[in-house]
């Protein structure tokens, strides 16, 4: 039981580190399921499991981005808790995914509660400014904001890992094969969902061809995502200079600019 307590604290601290990435480090992306789950694997001594759960949860969360006030299901919290369960109980990455999702929804709700509580800090800061207590005002941000956001991750992770491991272990042992196989397929569909969600934010009119090009390069030619990205950067830079008239394009445009009626395709019939 002591080791469970220690594990719960360690995993909780991993969660705090990930959360503070977006709070204090401008979201350098430590707050991503892949990183959180891998760190959990490191502190619990099972890196491979952490990586596997991290990769699976990361794929689902690809499309989940906090835009404005809408808080998506918190797959970072889900990934951290799921990785802890997988490491502590020996469950597979697919099984862990089913733990990740309810935890992510719970995290979403907690996120809403905490972000509402912080509204009050804002009003306390307003009052402090009126009284000339400037330090009190900005400490609402840098001290109390940090504390509240840390608790928002530490508490649920600690409780889930400390109390939940035995329960989850028992449930995992009862899962029949058809469920395990089904969850394996489900994790693939979830990945498709994550990518589709990403696409809803990215596809603009006339840009779908690039999606198809990227897919075709990888599926027919067997290129890796790295290779596709490199081709994409080169292609995008070429197209940009054509579209916006940089470089040689600009030279041509300015040559044409000397005579506003100049049209290289125009026939010289009237001469």
């Amino acid at each position: 039981m002591e080791s469970t307590l220690l594990s719960a604290v360690l995993v909780g601290l991993v969660g705090v580190f990930c959360m503070l990435d977006s709070r204090l480090l401008g979201r350098l992306n430590f707050e991503q399921p892949l990183i959180g789950a891998t760190l959990v694997g490191l502190v619990l001594g099972d890196v491979q499991t952490g990586l596997a759960v991290g990769a699976a949860t990361e794929l689902v969360s690809m499309g989940l981005v906090q835009v404005g006030a809408a808080v998506p299901p918190d797959m970072v919290l889900g990934g951290i808790v799921a990785a802890a369960f997988a490491c502590l109980t020996g469950a597979s990455a697919e099984t862990a995914m089913t733990i990740a999702i309810p935890v992510a929804v719970l995290g979403q709700l907690l996120g809403i509660v905490f972000r509402s509580i912080i509204v009050f800090l804002g009003h306390l800061a307003d009052d402090a400014i009126e009284k000339g207590n400037f330090k009190v005002a900005y400490r609402m941000h840098i001290v109390w904001g940090t504390v509240l956001y840390s608790l928002m991750y530490f508490l649920p992770i600690f409780v889930a890992v400390y109390v939940g491991t035995d329960v989850v272990q028992a449930v995992v042992n009862m899962i029949p094969d058809w469920v395990t196989n089904g969850l394996n397929v489900a994790s693939k569909i979830l990945t498709a969902y994550g990518l589709a969600l990403l696409l809803t934010m990215m596809i603009n009119k006339g840009m779908t061809v690039f999606l198809i090009l990227g897919f075709a390069l990888a599926s027919y030619l067997g290129l890796s995502v790295t290779a596709v990205s490199i081709f994409a950067v080169v292609l995008a830079l070429i197209l940009m200079s054509l579209k916006y008239g940089d470089g040689s394009g600009a030279a041509m445009a300015s040559a044409g600019g000397a005579d506003p009626d100049y049209d290289p395709l125009e026939d010289d019939d009237e001469d």
Partner: peptide
């Protein structure tokens, strides 16, 4: 978009 296409 091309990267996502590759990921699919």
């Amino acid at each position: 978009l091309m990267a996502v296409g590759g990921m699919v």
